[in-house]
Write a protein that binds this DNA or RNA. Sequence first.
RNA 1: GGUCCGUUGGUCAAUCGGUUAAGACGCUUCCCUUUCACGGAAGAAUGAGGGGUUCGAUUCCCCUACGGACUACCA
Length: 519
Amino acid sequence: MIIFIFATLIMERRVRVRFAPSPTGPLHIGGVRTALYNYLFAKKNNGDFLIRIEDTDQTRYVPGAENYIIESLKWLGITANEGVGFGDGEHAPYRQSERKPMYKQYAMQLLESGHAYYAFDTAEELDAMRERLKASNVDSKYDAITRMAMKNSITLPADEVQRRIESGEPYVIRIKLPKKEDIKFHDEIRGWVNINTAQMDDKVLYKSDGMPTYHLANVVDDYLMKITHVIRGEEWLPSAPLHVLLYRYLGWEEVMPKFAHLPLLLKPEGNGKLSKRDGDRLGFPVFPLEWKDPFTNEISSGYRESGYLPEAVINLLAFLGWNPGTTQEIFTKDELINAFSLERVSKSGAKFDLNKAKWFNHQYIKHTTNAALAEALNKELTNKGLIFSTEYVEKVCGLIKEKINFIKELWEVGNYFFIDPVSFDEGVIAKRWNDKSPLVIQDIIQLVRSHSDFSAGSFETDYNEALQKNGVTNKEFLQLLRVCLSGVAGGPPIFEMAELFGKEITLKRLQLALDTIRK
RNA sequence: GGUCCGUUGGUCAAUCGGUUAAGACGCUUCCCUUUCACGGAAGAAUGAGGGGUUCGAUUCCCCUACGGACUACCA
């Protein structure tokens, strides 16, 4: 036994981390980042990454949330070795609701070793206690002092406790904290953290519905699943000492995982934790995928539907709270895995910056193949009943991808490649359109018609000839030509654009402009 | 209120006692260009405040201020 303990102490344990969301709604990007850091850490250390669903609160169950979480992770390529959605490993099941029978014995163990006790207080009695303490300006905690005035197995005679339990009276099991003891633990990101038990309270470990609370379940499961590092949000920092105590009282301290509490993701404006409502109010999604609330039918936008590329989301999320210490900013997933370390995670919260997010997405769109972009654009075209050859759509994408930040802008920016303009940029018309303009256009049309071939080169030649004939300069007319062809003031090189349109469309557009633009 | 965590330009941030305090996004100006975008050049903009420690503090310590998290039979 001693040898075994010694061996586990000196032996490097295989790194195992977990992402353990609660299926109470859509996964927030802060949660996605937590999952990502866990994933990167696991891969970097040749370890395992697993998904565990923490659904111990049956009252907060939201249909579809679990699926949503898994689908989000899959969309982003954050894949797990084991767990819900990724196939069971040797520690199945991975849903705490399905592990329900496993927890009670540990609560009993704590009861027997005197580190926990039964409590029979009703909700009303607890409220009354809190009111009373608050009135006398004392912290309202269920602690070493207040527990002496409550109904529990410490204050009640043993036979009455027995009687109450046997008669089926509801009870909870609470941890029994020492009155005054410093709990010190090392956080991988923050260093040593010290909290005195006088500041904590006797948290419920086992609920009256027969389910463990997060605190017990999380410790038991992490132990059973051989988790080596708990990487989670900063909101858990205050309860970490409770977890440390649980490991200690359960006799697992020598295999207790290391803790790393991640800084929070903050709202872009003002202060506070990024929350559900901020996104759509501020123009960016807080959820990876679009989510429709099953109760209210309210829709929250998602990164995927907003035209973000998963690789870009991974990259920008990785940089919200971590940086490699070099000036490189664009990282593939493999590069991130290689560069990632907990030491370089920052301590302070990071504000989400929409501009930077756009920039990241832009970088990835620029480097996405025309074929991949064309596939996305084609979907939209099909929805609109527009049929074009893949080759054409790909060429369009190649011409406009430099100009867009989001996939959905392929259509917004490039729609004139597929439909005739419905209006012509008024600014350019007002500035450049004059009596000579129709004459030039007519000449261009005639010259183009007179040749059988049509290319960027031939079109430019014809255009220049028409200009010369009418005594108009390139500067005066070129942008007008663009507007006649596309309706808008900006875009790719004009003659290349026209070549892509083809002779028929080019002529048709010129005629359309001639017929439409009047001054 | 209490406890804990945090604080470098508008935002993300480097610096692990000695630097002209990087870089990126955004912004401004200029160049390139028919235009938009790209690209290139330049610029404005930062150590919350106060005490220490030290030959020397952005960096270490303390206090204050500010911000955040937590404070449920929720996770």
